Amino acid sequence: MEHLTLNTGAKIPLVGLGTWDLRDETCVSLVSEAIRLGYRLIDTAQMYDNEKEVGQGIAQTNVDRDDLFITTKLDSRSNGYKQALEGISRSLDNLNLDYVDLLLVHEPYSNDLAMYEALSEAYHDGKVKAIGISNYNQKRFEQFLKNVDIIPAVNQVECHLQFQKWVLQQKLKEHGTIMQAWSPLSQGKLGFEKQPEFLQLSEKYKKSPAQIVLRFLTQRGISVIPKTRRIECLEENMSIFDFQLLPEEMNLLKSLDKDTTLFSWTEY
């Protein structure tokens, strides 16, 4: 597994498991199986309503806690300083963990600065190893930076072939913030696996179109958290570090960017 270094000095895996929409025993078993297969980054959120199941999946493994990288996110129920403090305690209880490796403000809420103050306090108390934000575009990110003492370690955003966010990634990099991609495989909405570019690259590297996409993003220095319900896809999504796309192939895939979101609820 390859890693990126956060502005805290901690290492974050380039590939993790996203758990959006995973519920009940399916979530428990997938999390535990992912860790057994070598995943160390597991991403959840209050909004997903599955923190308890993620925690149960972690508890079923025998991997040392310090070898795992667990992320969760505070949603609108924690929209305020006091509410965020309570939300942090609730998430730790749900996960049955003493700390999380990364805690994010899930969206640019009205009281996000007060929420972030609570995150900063939890960071100093050792309940959180790194803090950051999610779904902040460049304008909101720059506004946010003017009012915080701790630079976000991560900005987790929608990023895939149709919405590649090169400018945002560069702006984040200038401030020492890592960009992480949710929905890196675009939830199967783009049909990129049928495009000639992918068929040719798949044949050349003996990799699936999904693996080509994930390698494209990770070669850019973007951590990815694809979600799947299938064990074979868990294995496939991890098996991307034994090949390297050439510069001209990276440029070919870059040309597919439409700078367009797939989700109407985002503010991009």
Score class of each variant (00 low, 15 high):
1 M>F: 09
6 L>Q: 02
7 N>F: 07
7 N>S: 11
16 G>K: 05
17 L>C: 08
19 T>S: 12
23 R>M: 11
23 R>E: 13
26 T>A: 11
30 L>M: 11
31 V>N: 07
32 S>R: 11
33 E>R: 15
36 R>Y: 10
36 R>I: 02
39 Y>H: 04
40 R>C: 04
41 L>Q: 13
43 D>W: 05
49 D>T: 07
50 N>Y: 07
50 N>K: 07
52 K>T: 14
52 K>S: 12
52 K>M: 02
55 G>Y: 10
55 G>P: 06
56 Q>Y: 05
57 G>P: 10
64 D>M: 04
67 D>K: 15
67 D>Y: 08
69 F>A: 07
74 L>I: 06
75 D>R: 02
75 D>C: 12
79 N>C: 06
79 N>I: 04
83 Q>N: 14
83 Q>P: 09
85 L>I: 12
90 R>I: 03
90 R>H: 13
91 S>E: 11
92 L>G: 10
94 N>L: 14
94 N>E: 15
96 N>F: 01
99 Y>L: 05
100 V>W: 10
100 V>N: 11
101 D>A: 04
102 L>R: 09
103 L>P: 13
105 V>E: 02
106 H>D: 04
110 S>I: 12
110 S>D: 13
110 S>N: 09
114 A>C: 03
115 M>T: 02
121 E>C: 06
121 E>G: 00
122 A>R: 07
123 Y>C: 05
124 H>A: 13
125 D>N: 13
125 D>P: 00
125 D>E: 15
129 K>S: 07
129 K>P: 03
131 I>H: 11
131 I>D: 10
131 I>Q: 11
132 G>F: 06
134 S>L: 03
134 S>F: 09
135 N>K: 07
135 N>R: 10
137 N>S: 12
137 N>K: 11
137 N>E: 09
139 K>R: 15
140 R>F: 10
141 F>C: 10
142 E>D: 12
145 L>C: 06
148 V>E: 06
149 D>L: 05
149 D>V: 04
153 A>L: 03
153 A>C: 05
155 N>E: 11
156 Q>P: 08
156 Q>N: 09
157 V>N: 14
160 H>E: 10
161 L>C: 04
162 Q>R: 14
164 Q>T: 06
167 V>D: 14
168 L>A: 03
168 L>Y: 04
169 Q>D: 09
170 Q>P: 00
173 K>T: 12
175 H>T: 10
180 Q>L: 04
180 Q>I: 03
182 W>N: 05
184 P>Q: 01
188 G>E: 06
190 L>Y: 01
191 G>R: 03
192 F>I: 00
192 F>A: 00
194 K>C: 01
195 Q>H: 12
199 L>M: 12
201 L>G: 00
204 K>C: 01
205 Y>R: 01
207 K>D: 02
207 K>I: 00
212 I>D: 00
213 V>K: 02
214 L>R: 04
215 R>Q: 03
218 T>C: 11
223 S>N: 09
224 V>P: 08
226 P>S: 06
231 I>G: 02
235 E>H: 06
235 E>Q: 15
239 S>P: 00
239 S>V: 00
241 F>G: 11
243 F>P: 00
243 F>T: 00
245 L>V: 05
246 L>Q: 15
246 L>N: 02
251 N>K: 15
253 L>K: 03
254 K>A: 13
255 S>Q: 05
255 S>Y: 05
256 L>P: 13
258 K>D: 09
259 D>K: 14
264 S>G: 03
267 E>S: 13
268 Y>W: 13
268 Y>L: 07
